[in-house]
Design a binder for these strands. Structure first.
Length: 231
RNA sequence: AUACGUUA
Protein backbone atom coordinates (compact mmCIF):
# COMPACT_ATOMS: atom_id res chain seq x y z
CA UNK A 1 0.00 0.00 0.00
CA UNK A 2 2.84 2.34 0.81
CA UNK A 3 4.31 1.64 -2.56
CA UNK A 4 0.94 2.47 -4.26
CA UNK A 5 0.94 5.82 -2.53
CA UNK A 6 4.44 6.46 -3.76
CA UNK A 7 3.34 5.59 -7.27
CA UNK A 8 0.38 7.93 -7.14
CA UNK A 9 2.52 10.89 -6.22
CA UNK A 10 5.34 10.16 -8.60
CA UNK A 11 2.96 9.61 -11.52
CA UNK A 12 1.30 12.89 -10.66
CA UNK A 13 4.64 14.65 -10.70
CA UNK A 14 5.18 13.40 -14.22
CA UNK A 15 1.82 14.76 -15.24
CA UNK A 16 0.40 11.26 -15.68
CA UNK A 17 -2.81 12.04 -13.89
CA UNK A 18 -4.87 9.24 -15.40
CA UNK A 19 -2.30 6.65 -14.43
CA UNK A 20 -2.19 8.04 -10.91
CA UNK A 21 -5.95 7.81 -10.72
CA UNK A 22 -5.85 4.23 -12.01
CA UNK A 23 -3.42 3.18 -9.31
CA UNK A 24 -5.69 4.74 -6.73
CA UNK A 25 -8.77 3.04 -8.14
CA UNK A 26 -7.05 -0.32 -8.13
CA UNK A 27 -6.33 0.06 -4.44
CA UNK A 28 -8.92 -1.80 -2.34
CA UNK A 29 -11.06 0.65 -0.41
CA UNK A 30 -9.80 -0.60 2.96
CA UNK A 31 -6.26 0.03 1.91
CA UNK A 32 -6.84 3.66 1.00
CA UNK A 33 -5.49 5.67 3.86
CA UNK A 34 -5.32 9.41 4.35
CA UNK A 35 -1.99 9.46 2.53
CA UNK A 36 -3.53 7.84 -0.57
CA UNK A 37 -6.36 10.35 -0.57
CA UNK A 38 -4.03 13.27 -0.10
CA UNK A 39 -1.76 12.04 -2.87
CA UNK A 40 -4.81 11.74 -5.11
CA UNK A 41 -6.22 15.23 -4.69
CA UNK A 42 -2.76 16.69 -4.77
CA UNK A 43 -2.31 14.95 -8.13
CA UNK A 44 -5.32 16.85 -9.44
CA UNK A 45 -4.19 20.10 -7.92
CA UNK A 46 -0.70 20.10 -9.40
CA UNK A 47 -2.14 19.27 -12.78
CA UNK A 48 -4.39 22.34 -12.74
CA UNK A 49 -7.58 20.49 -11.93
CA UNK A 50 -8.44 22.37 -8.79
CA UNK A 51 -12.15 21.69 -8.94
CA UNK A 52 -11.64 17.96 -8.95
CA UNK A 53 -9.08 18.22 -6.20
CA UNK A 54 -11.66 20.07 -4.12
CA UNK A 55 -14.27 17.42 -4.80
CA UNK A 56 -11.96 14.71 -3.57
CA UNK A 57 -11.00 16.73 -0.54
CA UNK A 58 -14.43 17.94 0.55
CA UNK A 59 -16.69 15.19 -0.73
CA UNK A 60 -14.80 11.91 -1.09
CA UNK A 61 -12.13 11.72 1.56
CA UNK A 62 -13.30 9.93 4.68
CA UNK A 63 -10.70 11.50 6.96
CA UNK A 64 -8.41 14.48 6.93
CA UNK A 65 -5.28 15.26 8.86
CA UNK A 66 -3.00 18.24 9.19
CA UNK A 67 -1.09 17.40 6.03
CA UNK A 68 -4.22 17.09 3.90
CA UNK A 69 -5.60 20.39 5.17
CA UNK A 70 -2.29 22.03 4.40
CA UNK A 71 -2.19 20.47 0.96
CA UNK A 72 -5.63 21.79 0.08
CA UNK A 73 -4.84 25.26 1.34
CA UNK A 74 -1.64 25.22 -0.68
CA UNK A 75 -3.52 24.16 -3.80
CA UNK A 76 -5.80 27.17 -3.50
CA UNK A 77 -2.94 29.51 -2.71
CA UNK A 78 -0.93 28.36 -5.70
CA UNK A 79 -3.88 28.97 -7.98
CA UNK A 80 -4.27 32.46 -6.61
CA UNK A 81 -7.52 31.64 -4.80
CA UNK A 82 -6.41 33.32 -1.64
CA UNK A 83 -9.86 33.66 -0.11
CA UNK A 84 -10.41 29.91 -0.31
CA UNK A 85 -6.92 29.24 0.98
CA UNK A 86 -7.55 31.51 3.94
CA UNK A 87 -10.86 29.81 4.62
CA UNK A 88 -9.18 26.42 4.76
CA UNK A 89 -6.51 27.72 7.09
CA UNK A 90 -9.18 29.22 9.34
CA UNK A 91 -11.25 26.05 9.44
CA UNK A 92 -8.55 23.49 10.00
CA UNK A 93 -8.19 22.10 13.49
CA UNK A 94 -4.58 23.09 14.07
CA UNK A 95 -1.51 24.59 12.47
CA UNK A 96 2.10 23.64 12.09
CA UNK A 97 5.07 25.36 10.48
CA UNK A 98 3.80 24.41 7.02
CA UNK A 99 0.43 26.06 7.67
CA UNK A 100 2.20 29.15 8.94
CA UNK A 101 4.39 29.27 5.85
CA UNK A 102 1.23 29.15 3.76
CA UNK A 103 -0.23 32.09 5.67
CA UNK A 104 3.05 33.83 5.18
CA UNK A 105 2.90 33.17 1.47
CA UNK A 106 -0.60 34.57 1.20
CA UNK A 107 0.50 37.73 2.95
CA UNK A 108 3.39 38.15 0.54
CA UNK A 109 1.10 37.54 -2.43
CA UNK A 110 -1.06 40.37 -1.15
CA UNK A 111 1.95 42.65 -0.85
CA UNK A 112 1.73 42.72 2.95
CA UNK A 113 5.39 42.24 3.68
CA UNK A 114 5.24 43.60 7.24
CA UNK A 115 2.49 41.17 8.11
CA UNK A 116 4.54 38.40 6.56
CA UNK A 117 7.47 39.42 8.71
CA UNK A 118 5.33 39.29 11.83
CA UNK A 119 4.18 35.80 10.94
CA UNK A 120 7.78 34.84 10.41
CA UNK A 121 8.89 36.30 13.73
CA UNK A 122 6.08 34.50 15.52
CA UNK A 123 7.18 31.11 14.24
CA UNK A 124 9.16 30.57 17.39
CA UNK A 125 8.34 26.92 17.80
CA UNK A 126 9.79 25.68 14.57
CA UNK A 127 11.21 28.22 12.18
CA UNK A 128 12.70 25.81 9.68
CA UNK A 129 14.79 26.17 6.55
CA UNK A 130 11.79 26.58 4.26
CA UNK A 131 10.44 29.38 6.42
CA UNK A 132 13.78 31.18 6.36
CA UNK A 133 13.99 30.76 2.61
CA UNK A 134 10.48 32.08 2.19
CA UNK A 135 11.27 35.22 4.18
CA UNK A 136 14.60 35.84 2.49
CA UNK A 137 13.07 35.23 -0.92
CA UNK A 138 10.17 37.54 -0.21
CA UNK A 139 12.54 40.38 0.61
CA UNK A 140 14.81 39.66 -2.33
CA UNK A 141 11.93 39.82 -4.78
CA UNK A 142 10.13 42.79 -3.37
CA UNK A 143 12.69 45.51 -3.47
CA UNK A 144 14.13 44.80 -0.02
CA UNK A 145 17.33 43.12 -1.04
CA UNK A 146 19.23 44.63 1.85
CA UNK A 147 16.78 43.10 4.30
CA UNK A 148 17.26 39.77 2.58
CA UNK A 149 21.00 39.94 3.17
CA UNK A 150 20.55 40.97 6.80
CA UNK A 151 18.24 38.04 7.36
CA UNK A 152 20.75 35.74 5.77
CA UNK A 153 23.21 36.87 8.42
CA UNK A 154 20.67 36.20 11.15
CA UNK A 155 20.14 32.78 9.75
CA UNK A 156 23.82 32.09 10.07
CA UNK A 157 23.93 33.44 13.60
CA UNK A 158 21.08 31.14 14.59
CA UNK A 159 22.92 28.13 13.29
CA UNK A 160 20.60 27.40 10.39
CA UNK A 161 22.43 26.04 7.37
CA UNK A 162 21.39 27.46 3.99
CA UNK A 163 20.61 25.35 0.95
CA UNK A 164 20.47 25.82 -2.81
CA UNK A 165 17.23 27.78 -2.61
CA UNK A 166 18.75 30.20 -0.13
CA UNK A 167 21.67 30.70 -2.45
CA UNK A 168 19.47 31.64 -5.38
CA UNK A 169 17.74 34.30 -3.33
CA UNK A 170 21.02 35.71 -2.08
CA UNK A 171 22.40 35.94 -5.59
CA UNK A 172 19.15 37.59 -6.67
CA UNK A 173 19.59 40.10 -3.85
CA UNK A 174 23.10 40.98 -4.98
CA UNK A 175 21.79 41.35 -8.49
CA UNK A 176 19.13 43.83 -7.46
CA UNK A 177 21.65 45.81 -5.47
CA UNK A 178 24.12 45.82 -8.33
CA UNK A 179 26.76 44.32 -6.06
CA UNK A 180 28.75 42.44 -8.63
CA UNK A 181 31.84 41.71 -6.57
CA UNK A 182 29.89 40.49 -3.58
CA UNK A 183 27.79 38.34 -5.85
CA UNK A 184 30.81 36.83 -7.51
CA UNK A 185 32.42 36.18 -4.16
CA UNK A 186 29.30 34.49 -2.91
CA UNK A 187 29.04 32.38 -6.02
CA UNK A 188 32.55 30.99 -5.73
CA UNK A 189 32.35 30.48 -1.97
CA UNK A 190 29.13 28.46 -2.09
CA UNK A 191 30.77 25.06 -2.51
CA UNK A 192 33.60 25.83 -0.11
CA UNK A 193 31.65 27.41 2.72
CA UNK A 194 28.38 25.55 2.43
CA UNK A 195 29.05 22.50 0.35
CA UNK A 196 26.57 23.66 -2.26
CA UNK A 197 27.74 23.21 -5.82
CA UNK A 198 26.23 25.78 -8.14
CA UNK A 199 23.71 24.31 -10.56
CA UNK A 200 22.07 25.80 -13.62
CA UNK A 201 19.79 28.00 -11.59
CA UNK A 202 22.71 29.58 -9.75
CA UNK A 203 24.52 30.18 -12.98
CA UNK A 204 21.42 31.93 -14.26
CA UNK A 205 21.32 34.12 -11.15
CA UNK A 206 24.99 34.92 -11.54
CA UNK A 207 24.57 35.81 -15.18
CA UNK A 208 21.85 38.15 -14.03
CA UNK A 209 24.20 39.74 -11.50
CA UNK A 210 26.74 40.38 -14.23
CA UNK A 211 24.21 41.32 -16.87
CA UNK A 212 22.47 43.94 -14.79
CA UNK A 213 25.81 45.54 -14.08
CA UNK A 214 26.55 45.63 -17.79
CA UNK A 215 29.35 43.09 -17.56
CA UNK A 216 28.18 41.24 -20.61
CA UNK A 217 31.54 39.80 -21.51
CA UNK A 218 31.95 38.32 -18.05
CA UNK A 219 28.41 36.93 -18.30
CA UNK A 220 29.24 35.18 -21.54
CA UNK A 221 32.44 33.81 -20.11
CA UNK A 222 30.58 32.41 -17.16
CA UNK A 223 28.08 30.69 -19.41
CA UNK A 224 30.93 29.15 -21.34
CA UNK A 225 32.29 27.59 -18.16
CA UNK A 226 29.00 26.02 -17.21
CA UNK A 227 29.68 22.33 -16.68
CA UNK A 228 27.01 20.50 -18.60
CA UNK A 229 25.66 17.35 -17.12
CA UNK A 230 23.10 15.35 -19.08
CA UNK A 231 20.20 13.92 -17.18
C1' A B 1 12.21 8.18 -0.97
C1' U B 2 4.77 6.83 1.31
C1' A B 3 1.20 12.75 1.00
C1' C B 4 1.63 19.29 2.42
C1' G B 5 4.79 24.87 2.58
C1' U B 6 10.04 28.18 0.28
C1' U B 7 13.79 30.12 -4.91
C1' A B 8 12.74 33.94 -12.74
Amino acid sequence: MVCCNVMISSLAQQGRLDDARAVFDRLPANDRDVVSWTALFHAYAVNDRLEEAAFVFFRDMPDKNLVSWNAMAAAYARAGHTAEARAILDQMPGHNVVSLTLMFHIAVQGGRLEQARSLFDDMTLGKDLVAWNAMIGAYAQNGQATEALLLYRDMHVQGMDPDDVTMSSILAAYSRLGRVEAGREHFVSMPVDHGIKPVEEHYACMVDVLGRAGELVAAEELLATFPFHPS
